[in-house]
Design a protein around this nucleic acid. Structure first.
Length: 234
DNA sequence: GCGACAG
DNA sequence: ATCTTGTCGC
């Protein structure tokens, strides 16, 4: 497991963070379809916190896209680099997530993260941010609709409806299990919305959430449990 | 001004 | 995100 410090020049205020988003947003690539589902590698990233001890742990888990077998994984720990502010989630997670991705022994392929990409107040959520910084194709799969609205998709798995900011489609509510609450998919970087949904469905054959985020979630929690006692021993 | 609000 | 036991159902 690698250890990270908050990067020099990291935004300290909400104003600075917002300015960073506005600047980086111009670098998002939205006109690529992205890798086809079921081929190559797909990597899930997730983060767990211990706010009391100011510790954050990130995990990256690489799956074979065809079999969903784990082929590689890595973790990183660091200090919390930003408070949780809706719309500024990326500033809390990105330094540690980047460290985990860089520690992987192989190419991540498509990256799937918790949270949003385009579906964001400034159209630049975690998945967009991570994509611009790494150049990798990235999508966001969130568990909640945030401030956006949607019509309930039909009951069968695979049904979807637009996730709306007013009349603008910023993502999709996608049902991954019959009659179970949908997940909320949005584009991050270098992947189309249709393809992002196809990947999400392929990655969630049995549970509501994609295997990528399930594996990454379990791993970062474990990394946090193991890291806190070590960091707290002095 | 007040409330809601990814993780 | 996180605090947390049992419990209903396939």
């Amino acid at each position: 497991m690698t250890t990270v410090r908050t990067p020099a020049g990291w935004p300290a205020t909400e104003e600075e963070a917002g300015a960073v988003q506005d600047a980086l947003r111009t670098k998002v690539v939205l006109d690529e379809a992205g890798p086809p589902p079921g081929t190559g590698h797909v990597t899930g990233v997730d983060v767990a916190y211990d706010d009391e001890r100011d510790v954050v742990a990130a995990a990256a888990v690489v799956l074979d896209a065809a079999t969903l077998d784990v082929v590689a994984e890595s973790t990183a720990v660091g200090r919390i680099s930003f408070p949780y502010v809706p719309g500024l989630l990326a500033f809390r997670e990105i330094p540690t997530v980047l460290a985990a991705l860089e520690a992987l022994p192989r190419t991540p392929g498509l990256v799937v993260c918790d949270g949003y990409g385009l579906a964001h107040p400034r159209r630049f959520g975690l998945a967009s941010h991570l994509g611009v910084l790494t150049g990798l194709p990235v999508i966001g799969v969130a568990k909640n609709p945030f401030t956006f609205t949607y019509e309930e998709p039909a009951a069968p798995r695979g049904s979807a409806s637009p996730l709306l900011a007013g009349h603008e489609e910023v993502g999709r509510a996608l049902r991954t299990r019959d009659a179970v609450k949908p997940v909320f998919v949005s584009v991050g970087h270098r992947v189309s919305l249709d393809n992002a949904c196809a990947h999400t469905l392929a990655l969630a054959p049995a549970y509501r959430l994609p295997e990528t985020t399930r594996r990454a979630d379990a791993l970062c929690r474990r990394a946090l449990r193991e890291a806190v006692p070590a960091l707290t021993a002095d």
